[in-house]
């Protein structure tokens, strides 16, 4: 798998992501500047966490105008796999690649803690390494992770099986306990918890490896990924 990790000014989990994919998962990975305009040659693109452009206006609101974003939209439209984590998830919703939005946590405070999650759909390209209903623990670290979508959108998400991860103990007020979801086509995943922070026993756990293992399997054409699904 050859992965691109986007780096916006203010991204701060970009090198953590390249460490997880490169050093730990043993894949080919490259940092790509937000000023770049092409994503040719990559099998998947990761939009990492951080505070793109300072996030002073609203998380991800400036990043969606970065030069790389049109290449990213083309990449996703062509069915390429896109993973957005934390600020990456916020950017993907701002850019319209994922439905809904991320509001301030109900506590109005930044929260950093290990958080139990339930795998709600183990058939996506990002989750085949898990089993449905499995409980895993991943760290969260965000101020604006409170997922919101209107009732109709939520109903669609649930009907289509787009919710991939749910909080076992909702820390931020997200509707339907949503911690991670895909687009309708299933090739774009956004999640607030940080899988790249849970890939080494030394640092407290390896529950995040499944996301990367699933992607690697999907690249190999494993079944039950996006290719076998029949979304309009």
């Amino acid at each position: 798998m050859k992965a691109a990790v986007l780096s916006f000014p203010g991204s701060n989990c970009d090198t953590d992501m390249t460490w997880a994919i490169g050093e730990v998962a043993g894949q080919d990975v490259q940092l790509v500047s937000a000023q770049a305009t092409s994503l040719a040659g990559f099998d998947c693109v990761v939009v990492p966490g951080g505070f793109s452009y300072g996030d002073y206006l609203r998380s991800g609101a400036i990043a969606k105008f970065a030069p790389i974003m049109s290449a990213l939209k083309d990449f996703a439209a062509a069915g390429g796999f896109v993973l957005g984590v934390c600020n990456g998830f916020q950017i993907l919703t701002e850019a319209g690649l994922l439905p809904g939005t991320l509001q301030w946590n109900t506590s109005l405070q930044f929260i950093c803690q290990p958080t139990p999650l339930i795998v709600a759909n183990a058939r996506t390209a990002f989750s085949t390494a898990y089993s449905e209903g499995q409980q895993i623990t991943l760290p969260i670290a965000h101020g604006e992770g409170n997922y919101y979508a209107d009732d109709a959108t939520l109903a669609d998400l649930e009907k289509n099986g787009q919710v991939v991860f749910r909080y076992a103990e909702n820390p931020n007020g997200s509707r339907n306990d949503i911690a991670g979801l895909t687009n309708a086509r299933g090739n774009v995943l956004g999640m607030m918890p940080h899988p790249e922070r849970a890939v080494e026993t030394l640092l407290g756990g390896t529950d995040g490896l499944g996301v990367f293992d699933s992607l690697i399997n999907a690249m190999k054409g494993a079944p039950a990924d996006v290719a076998t699904r029949t979304f309009a």
């Binding site: 930044f110 950093c112 940080h194 640092l203």
Partner: peptide, 17 residues
């Protein structure tokens, strides 16, 4: 002191043992 320290990102850079 969790009520205080959970407002700090303690793990970014992924080296915190």
């Amino acid at each position: 002191k969790k009520a205080i320290y959970r407002r700090y990102d303690a793990q970014v850079q992924t080296n915190t043992v």
